[in-house]
Nucleic acid binder design. Structure first.
Lengths: 251, 251
DNA sequence: CGGAGTTTTGAGGCTATTCAAAGGTCGTGG
DNA sequence: CCACGACCTTTGAATAGCCTCAAAACTCCG
């Protein structure tokens, strides 16, 4: 693992996602390594794709955070997903002529791109890949459904707790948390766009959390002091994802 | 078209969905006809699946309306999707051990079921089917993203307008609207669970809509009197879905 | 050190919620 | 066919949660 090359690391990012539900064969590893283009570095604030752009490419996020957001008339924006390393960006707009979501780098990022033609060809040619990306898409649906439930049915405190727990759990899988400690490179304004609250109200709630001893803020970082309490506030049932389920028989 | 058999009608329901993005081959038609089991009738209020149940099957909705909803602690519920004829029910829970969404018949319904094993085998064996269901899944993600944007960023009136327009457009594709007229077999409580408002507030807003001359209510039916105005209130950009895009090359 | 962006705080107002109760509608059983 | 009960809709009043506006304090980068 030590001294692995840049290309090697990128490949492992791809395997992280596409091997999530299915064991990867050596052949599939080979296949994945060549599907995505070379790593590209982009600065914070860079817009990978505006909404309305023709969705010609998908991106594999290798490093950094990216937001996917929708504009509503009245100038407001809803962030529908915070993408973390390993995520595939831009897939929801595959079946439409103009991209629905804007993709914006929240931190400096590294991505590898693939044309939608190449991506869909891979889906059609490689059953293992098809099953994998199909199940990933369903997982994303579940994530959106959970967020919708949170935003639609709970008050501010629960929403923010839910957002923190979601990011914490996902970062933990990536090995990027440590004793309740996690990176959080989001402004309070951005948190508001994520959970459907005004920046001012986000501030008051976060402040309450801190005074209640639930969290501790540092620069671009938070420490979750009472994860169980936060999880309970969010009030969502955690999902147990299946790996290599017996009911999938590949040809 | 006249005097078509029950089985024939069911098959056409399947083709409606799976031929949405791709032309169906005769072979694929054959394939689809045998994938789903026989039509089953279920009464209104019947729960096809509780949340927490093992998600052993998917369902093709042939006739009627079905809601997919998530429970949050505090006893509230968020309806994440109103399913109409042609929809596939239950797919989001494919990758998890216990179903996240409950599926409830809002009207008397007819469904055809398929085991998840058979469904996933079809994905793995038939590239055309894989591409089709993959794109359908992305379309569902877009729908959820739009709903989330509506619920997260707009006030009550816009949310209800958005819900009406969404259902109107989907029913129109199915040929079930006529001059602004559409079926609406939802209680105001259910509308509230859909858009994140209390039943009382839903009532007041709907009442306002009626007094403003935007809609006209009849039993289990609404007439949209000013569709353009409602669409503007919703404030979401409509998506242009692609059929048989040139960038999909099948083996 | 300057300036842009971010966080914090206060005040007032609006939207939506809860609770409670009355009035309707519909299906069902007598 | 009518009467009853369950559910749904409607209305009012009080309250809670959140928003907007505005300005001050702070942070970070150049």
């Amino acid at each position: 693992m030590v001294g692995r090359s840049k290309a090697g690391e990128s490949a492992s990012t791809a395997e992280l996602r596409f091997g999530e539900f299915l064991q990867l064969t050596t052949e599939a590893r080979e296949f994945l390594a060549n599907l995505f283009g070379p790593p590209q570095s982009l600065a914070r604030q860079h817009v990978l794709r505006h909404d309305g752009d023709p969705p010609t490419h998908l991106y594999l996020l290798v490093e950094g955070w990216v937001s996917a957001s929708l504009a509503v008339t009245s100038g407001k924006q809803q962030t529908v997903k915070i993408h973390l390393p390993g995520d595939v960006l831009g897939a929801p707009s595959l079946p439409v002529a103009r991209a629905a979501e804007a993709l914006t780098a929240l931190t400096p990022v590294v991505v590898r791109s693939v044309s939608r033609a190449d991506f869909m060809t891979a889906v059609a040619r490689c059953p293992r890949f098809a099953v994998s990306v199909f199940l990933s898409a369903q997982k994303e649906r579940l994530a959106l459904m959970s967020t919708l439930a949170l935003v639609g049915q709970t008050e501010g405190g629960s929403r923010i707790a839910g957002m923190l727990i979601d990011l914490y759990d996902r970062l933990t899988v990536l090995g990027r948390t440590e004793g309740g400690h996690m990176p959080l490179p989001l402004t309070q304004h951005q948190i508001g766009e994520l959970v459907g609250l005004s920046p001012v109200h986000v501030n008051r709630k976060i402040r309450e959390f801190e005074q209640a001893g639930l969290i501790l803020r540092e620069t671009r970082t938070v420490q979750l002091l009472d994860i169980d309490k936060l999880r309970e506030m969010a009030g969502l049932t955690a999902h147990e994802y299946l790996r290599d389920p017996e009911w999938i028989s590949l040809p």
